[in-house]
């Protein structure tokens, strides 16, 4: 079984955003990076599938050399190989361009299972996995929260308002994963140390012409006025009064 999992390096934003002076990007000075939450779960799922069924797992990202950090983190958790599709300007790659580069890179490698996040945390385009599946002519189920491999088939579940939709797809296939499919592990210290030695395969592709071009980023209006009700347990009578005022009791 050969499993591929694709991730995207995104700023680890915490409590708020600062935008760059030109308003084009999130200011990442003094900000760490992570992979999007859905993808963290896709990485975990890839590791679990290989632990259960044997084979190899590869993590891929399209990004700057610094994204090696995210690839090594996945290796530290248990992924066995890594590919960096080098794109210093990856933030200006639209979903179609990203998908084309990924499809081109992975096509000769013959993966049985290709996992993506349902959407990236930053640009939320909801497309790269679907587009890669189309380019490779593979079936694709999006937004899955359960996955099982049985006799060359994948049984995937998608959560709905009333329950679960069950899909059965013949491999090779593409799935986009949602957080909740599993609880991602933390890398072990040993894993972190040995991940440093695993080589990262570097690939270069020509950037396809963009169809979407970012013109600006902006913050939406937020309109709340904070009223401090008090400090510590002494604030309780004030809280109760407020709850009553709001009709909560």
């Amino acid at each position: 079984m050969k499993v591929l999992v694709c991730v995207k390096r995104v700023p680890d934003t915490g409590g708020g955003f600062k935008l760059t002076p030109d308003g084009m990007r999130v200011d990442t000075t003094n900000v760490g990076f992570a992979v999007s939450p859905h993808e963290e779960c896709a990485v975990e799922e890839a590791i679990r599938i290989i632990e259960k069924h044997g084979g190899s797992s590869t993590v891929l990202t399209l990004g700057p050399p610094a994204a090696g950090e995210q690839l090594r983190e996945a290796i530290a958790k248990g992924i066995t190989g890594a590919i960096l599709v080098e794109a210093e300007d990856y933030e200006s790659w639209d979903p179609a361009a990203t998908a084309q580069a990924i499809a081109e890179t992975v096509k000769p490698l013959g993966f049985d299972l290709l996992l993506f996040g349902n959407e990236s945390a930053d640009t939320c385009n909801y497309q790269v996995g679907v587009r890669v599946a189309h380019l490779l002519e593979l079936p694709c189920v999006t937004g899955i929260k359960a996955l099982e491999i049985q006799n060359g088939k994948a049984i995937a579940k998608r959560e709905t308002k009333d329950g679960w939709e069950v899909y059965e797809v013949t491999l090779p296939a593409v799935f986009t994963v949602k957080e909740g499919i599993n609880t991602p592990r933390h890398p072990s210290l040993r894993g972190i140390m040995s991940a440093k030695k695993v080589p990262i395969e570097q690939k270069r592709v020509t950037k396809p012409a963009p169809q979407l071009v970012r013109k600006a980023l902006k913050k939406p209006q937020e309109g709340r006025q904070l009223e401090i009700l008090g400090q510590g347990p002494e604030a309780v009578p004030k809280i109760v009064e407020k709850l009553r005022e709001l009709g909560a009791i």
Binding site: V26, Q211, V213
Partner: peptide, 16 residues
């Protein structure tokens, strides 16, 4: 369009 689940808004030009 919505970015970061709606925490930021992105203005995009569509060429296709």
């Amino acid at each position: 369009r919505s970015n970061w689940g709606g925490s930021l808004l992105e203005e995009v030009e569509i060429l296709s």
